[in-house]
Design a protein around this nucleic acid. Structure first.
Length: 420
RNA sequence: GUGGAUGUAGCUCAGUGGUCAGAGCACCAGGUUGUGGCCCUGGGGGUCGGGGGUUCAAAUCCCCUCAUUCACCCCA
């Protein structure tokens, strides 16, 4: 085996059956929920002009600064593998003139995202996000709708122990003032803070608030909160979001320390977290991005959405013993005599056309080995075809779980299985 | 980018200087010439992650490197 040719790139994964079957079920269920909420799917490119992400996600963010997969193509364009879905969706919304049609525009998407990160539990260089976006809606009900959609999907997957973390980081009117206020307040504490926090002070003071170092956390306990300095419009918006969510039987906690690492967010930001998931416990992250479309040269357009990590959802489900979606064949044809092979092809074709998952042996193995293969594949029924069946026109159908057998005319086997 | 742990069969791992490198599970075949699961027997499968060094002798000790993994930063 060649070490390089037969090794996947760092941070990527091969998703094998049966996990791949479960994976597909998760995508299906997400699409069902999106359909129920009226969010048709948009299919977007996996790479874009690098500038799209640099300008929207933000030059100074980790995602752009150190995680973006950028490359020049053969025509000299600077492209980037998408690190997230919202910027692409906003670009497509504008480029295709959706902003000129009826508003709001609701969209969903499922697909791979790429970030050059050091892999760890729940984090990869290629991961998959299921997300939704609403463009052209500034009402707090839109924020509530997308949070509700995320929660409804996760509920349908049978997940419990979920909670929604919620915060408002203000808008271009009130955020700069808050940043300055926080900086001024923290300045005298700088010598006590950790090295990371001293650099956060300059780069992104909001990040000071969620440092995990205990000495920083205690030092900053009394820091001013963004929630206390929201402008009245943001204040009102946030109060409305909280109010609707409170009526909805969702475990929501307002967390003034929740800060997200993408520049385009305004007002509402949120995460859905699950307790038992290692250090990367956010299943879902999102928020409002009222200035995003305008940055791309479009009209002022409010928007809100989220991205959900498919691998993380699967991890939680599998840690809870999830097996839904595991494939199980209905019928295994064991061939005891090569002269029965044509008959086997005919029965298999009939069964498959009628929706029964049917396998049969490709030849050269003993009947015993074939029965073993049938059991291993998890087949519900096995049918032996040989000289005897050809002569009498009847066969023995064996139910694998119980070992019970019954004789049936060959022509009726598929009918019997279809009836259950 | 930073720190820790780990790389031996498909999987989980044993083997810390000394014959040709092992176990369990899995896989294939036979025992049972038309029937899976239990049992028995046999079989296939390894550049001991890679390279260099020390030594009469290296899976084992040293250096480098690659990969995996967990955590930090950050994020889904």
């Amino acid at each position: 085996m060649c070490r390089v040719l037969a090794t996947r790139p760092r941070g990527t994964t091969d998703v094998l059956p049966p996990r791949s079957e479960r994976w597909i079920r998760r995508e299906q269920r997400f699409r069902e929920v999106c359909r129920a909420f009226g969010y048709p799917e948009i299919i977007l490119p996996m790479f874009e002009h690098a500038e799209l992400f640099q300008r929207t996600v933000g030059e100074a963010t980790d995602i752009v600064e150190k995680e973006l997969y950028v490359f020049p193509d053969r025509g000299g364009r600077l492209l980037a593998l998408r690190p997230e879905g919202t910027a692409s969706a906003a670009r497509a919304y504008l480029e295709n003139g959706l902003h000129r049609g009826p508003q709001p525009v609701r969209l969903s998407y499922v697909g791979p995202m790429f970030r050059y990160e050091r892999p760890q539990a729940g984090r990869f260089r290629q991961h998959t996000q299921m997300g939704v976006e609403v463009f052209g809606a500034d009402q707090p009900t839109a924020d509530v709708e997308v949070i509700l959609l995320a929660a409804e999907y996760l509920r349908k997957e049978g997940l419990t122990e979920l909670s929604v973390r919620l915060n408002s980081i203000g808008c271009p009117d009130c955020r700069p003032a808050y940043r300055e206020a926080l900086r001024r307040w923290a300045h005298p504490l700088l010598p006590e803070l950790c090295e990371d926090c001293r650099s956060r002070y300059h780069r992104n003071p909001l990040r000071l608030l969620d440092c995990k170092e205990t000495r920083c956390a205690t030092a900053l306990q009394e820091a001013p909160r963004s929630l206390e300095t929201l402008c009245s419009a943001c204040e009102e918006h946030f109060a409305a979001v909280r109010g609707y969510l409170a009526d909805l039987d969702l475990p929501v906690s307002v967390d003034p320390n929740l800060v997200r690492g993408i520049d385009y967010y305004t007002r509402t930001v949120f995460e859905v977290v699950h307790g038992r998931l290692g250090a990367q416990r956010a299943l879902c992250g999102g928020g409002r991005y009222d200035g995003l479309v305008e940055v791309l040269g479009g009209p002022p357009t409010p928007g809100v959405g989220f991205g959900m990590g498919l691998e993380r959802v699967l991890d939680v489900l599998e840690s809870a013993g999830e097996t839904e979606g595991d494939a199980r064949p209905d019928l295994f044809l064991a061939i005891a005599d090569e002269r029965a092979r044509s008959q086997a092809f005919a029965i298999a074709t009939d069964a498959r056309r009628r929706g029964l998952a049917t396998l049969f042996d490709l030849g050269g193995r003993s009947l015993k080995a074939q029965m073993k293969a049938a059991a291993r594949a998890g087949a519900r029924f096995a049918l032996v075809l040989g000289e005897r069946e050809l002569a009498t026109g009847t066969a023995t159908l064996r139910e694998m779980d119980t070992g019970q057998e019954r004789g049936l005319p060959l022509a009726e086997v598929v009918d019997a299985l279809c009836r259950g």
